[in-house]
Design a protein around this nucleic acid. Structure first.
Lengths: 163, 163
DNA sequence: TGAACTCGGACCAAATCGGTCCTGTTTCAA
DNA sequence: TTGAAACAGGACCGATTTGGTCCGAGTTCA
């Protein structure tokens, strides 16, 4: 249920890449595609999407390419991912237009709304600079609590976590 | 990226339903399907899955049906969902067998591993009794922080959250 | 003028998903 | 003992989604 689409993965990689080469000016699609081993055509679409989202600036013509339009530290994880995820919500109840197929008596909607808000809240503070230095990510942030938790082992490993 | 499968939704509804009728003995698939407006055939599969996961107990034969095998309070959200979600991880990197298609130099894996652990940690404490009383869910738990957050409005609403 | 780019629509094949159907097997009750 | 009621589960199907390709058009620089 947490999996992001392939395009989102490419987007995350691209932002990472461009952040590292920030001072090299622009980077072309072909260049980035080869460096990160991503199909050029689809990467082009991804970068277009990121540009539309305001995260990248494009330079057309020969010698052109893409560049981050902000420092990495000011780019949020959810911003990078959203253009390629049709919905960021947990159940179909609340996708949009309030169009819950289950009618007004859906017992799932209320708890799910809270759950959804809770999740987004967890991600709200996550910015892309965390992706550049995993070690820092591991030990320097509020996320360090996630590591070494007993419950974590239970949940990530195999079948029945809570018995 | 957070959306659960339809089967997971049905599973959550079923657990809710069975929890409310806990003292009525067993509930048949047909009964539950009609009450909650779910296709009977597929609900049957869902309940089978929940039984295999150890959450339900089945009574075969005439007058049979399903029953929670534990109090709701001891059933975790992730337990209910996992049988119907092939992977609970964020990127294909870490799905299983370490089979990352991108080779050893995948710059996504390390940060994503942390992110993934972080997410699961957030859900580890969430039990199904929270689904029975949305009001309690709203105000009585650690989740109340999610409501009314400014960042929440930004992230859930429209296009560009962080500008 | 032409090459190297970004842009973006059209299209396609494969996989996934939600759902149906159909055939057991087990159990209870008449 | 028999049959109905219920769980168990495999086979299948159609629609949607997804990852990916192809191609044409506009832009800019050398």
């Amino acid at each position: 249920m947490f999996k992001v689409s392939r395009k989102s993965e490419y987007a995350l990689i691209a932002i990472q890449h461009l952040a590292r080469r920030a001072r090299d000016g622009v980077t072309s699609v072909a260049e980035l595609a080869q460096a990160e081993n991503i199909p050029p055509d689809i990467l082009a679409k991804v970068l277009q999407g990121l540009k539309r989202a305001g995260l990248l600036t494009a330079a057309k013509g020969a010698g052109g390419g893409y560049r981050l339009s902000r420092p990495v530290k000011e780019i949020h994880f959810l911003e990078v991912v959203r253009p390629f995820e049709e919905q960021l919500c947990v159940v179909s109840c609340q996708n949009d237009h309030g169009g819950c197929e289950r009618g007004g008596d859906c017992t799932l909607r209320d708890p799910m709304t809270v759950l959804n808000a809770y999740m987004l809240r967890q991600f709200a503070d996550l910015t892309m600079d965390m992706f550049l230095s995993p070690h820092k990510l591991l030990h320097g942030t509020h996320m360090d609590v996630a590591i070494g938790e007993t419950s974590l082992g239970r949940l990530t490993s195999t079948a029945h976590p809570a018995d």
